Each structure stands twice: as C-alpha cells, then as structure tokens.
Amino acid sequence: MTPKTLVLAALVGSVAATGALAKGGHGGMRGEMPAFEELDANNDGQLTLEEIVAFREAHAKQRFAEIDTDGDGQVTREDVIAAARDKAGDRAEKRAGRMFDRLDANEDGTLTEAEIATAKAEHADRRGDRMERMFDRADADGNGAISKDEFEAMQAMKKDRRKKNRG
C-alpha cells in the first residue's frame, strides 16, 4: 500500500490509523498532534503506548462516523471524495478516488471499518509498527512511558524536521 493509500485510510477513519493508515503512521492524527493532556487518559502525567493507541483508535472511529453521513457503517466513494476535498481541497478528489478503489477489497462501492482495518493490518505487517518505534524514540529514559518533557521534546524535533523539509 502506498503512502497515498495510507492518507485516505486515515481520512476515512481507520485510523488506527493507525492508523496506521495515515501517511507517516499516525492513524488519522495527521497535522497537529493532540495536546499531552488529551492523550493522558488517566491523568498520571505519563503517556503509555496503550493510551496513545486508544486515542488513535477513538479518533479513527470518530473520523469514520463523520464521513459515514447516513450512519450505515459504510462510506461510499463519493463520501470519501467529499471528505478529501473538504480536508485537502479540490486537487485531492482524483487521488481520493484512486485510493478508495484500492481499499474497496470486495469492490462493492463502499468501504467498511473492517476493510480499512484489514488494509491497516497488511500495511503494519509490511512496514513494522511505526507507532511503537516512534514511542520508543520519544521515551528517552526507557521507562515505558512518555513524560510531558519527553512529549514536548518529540514535538520540537518534529517541528524542526518539518522546517528542514520545507526549506
């Protein structure tokens, strides 16, 4: 699956992404990362991999529900294209259509959360678990949790990397 396919999958709520079906493996959490406090579900001042994965999965379900405007548990090609256009502008329409076609495993003209989950699992099998690797890099002291300081350091590093890539 290409990075473009992963972007669409995140868009339609694999998420999970992760999610991960989002380009870069963030399971639908592209762009701005949620605040530390949003991810810290038990408010203990530490992020575990489980908290991040749970947040990512909830985000993916929410995004799928937003795109599934009639609530039937399926999104059509048109739903996906409209959501892509809303999120990324008109130029995303053609790309979203091609990505939809690749994800529609049974070729019935709709995507279900199960089809997205299958595509996500296949991607994870081929590329390894990027979320775990990202978590391990952020967990500078190796204690199995990310502190607020470690989280902020990770954010700063990502911001610096984006600047370098743009400039």
Rank of each mutant, 00 (worst) to 15 (best):
Q46N: 09
N106A: 11
D72V: 12
N106F: 13
R102A: 13
A41K: 09
M29H: 02
E51P: 08
A117F: 05
I146S: 00
F135K: 02
A65T: 15
D104N: 13
A145F: 03
R95I: 08
A9L: 07
G19H: 05
T112Q: 02
K159W: 12
F151L: 03
R137I: 10
I116H: 07
N143I: 09
N43F: 14
E38H: 06
G28W: 08
E122P: 11
R85E: 12
R63I: 05
R63V: 01
H26L: 14
K159R: 14
K159L: 11
N42S: 10
S147K: 02
T69G: 09
L49T: 04
K148H: 01
A153S: 11
T5D: 09
L21W: 13
G19F: 02
D108N: 13
N106C: 09
R95P: 02
E115P: 05
E132Y: 08
E50I: 10
N143K: 06
L8C: 04
E37Q: 10
E113H: 09
G144S: 07
G97V: 06
M1Q: 13
V75I: 14
R63D: 00
A54D: 10
A88L: 13
I81G: 00
E93W: 04
T2A: 04
V53N: 02
E57G: 00
M33Y: 06
P3N: 06
F64M: 00
E51K: 06
P3E: 14
D44C: 03
V80G: 07
T118P: 03
K87S: 15
D129A: 02
T2V: 01
D72W: 00
E152M: 12
A96C: 05
D68F: 01
L39F: 01
Q62M: 15
A54Q: 11
V12A: 10
G45S: 03
P34V: 01
A54L: 13
D129H: 04
D149L: 14
N106D: 13
K120C: 11
K94W: 08
R85M: 15
T112E: 07
G27F: 03
A82S: 08
E113K: 12
F151W: 04
F151G: 05
L39M: 15
R127L: 07
K94Y: 05
T48E: 11
A84E: 03
M131T: 01
A145V: 08
M33W: 08
E113P: 10
H26F: 09
D160T: 03
A145Q: 08
S14Y: 09
D149M: 13
T5N: 11
D86I: 00
V75Y: 00
D70H: 06
M99L: 01
F64A: 01
F36G: 02
M1N: 12
R95V: 09
T5W: 08
M29G: 00
E78L: 15
A83I: 05
G97P: 04
T5Y: 11
A22M: 09
M1W: 12
T5F: 10
K4M: 10
G19P: 07
G27L: 04
V7H: 13
E132T: 03
K94A: 12
M157P: 10
A58G: 15
G25W: 00
R161C: 11
V53R: 09
I81P: 02
N143P: 02
D108Q: 07
M157V: 11
F100K: 03
D141Q: 01
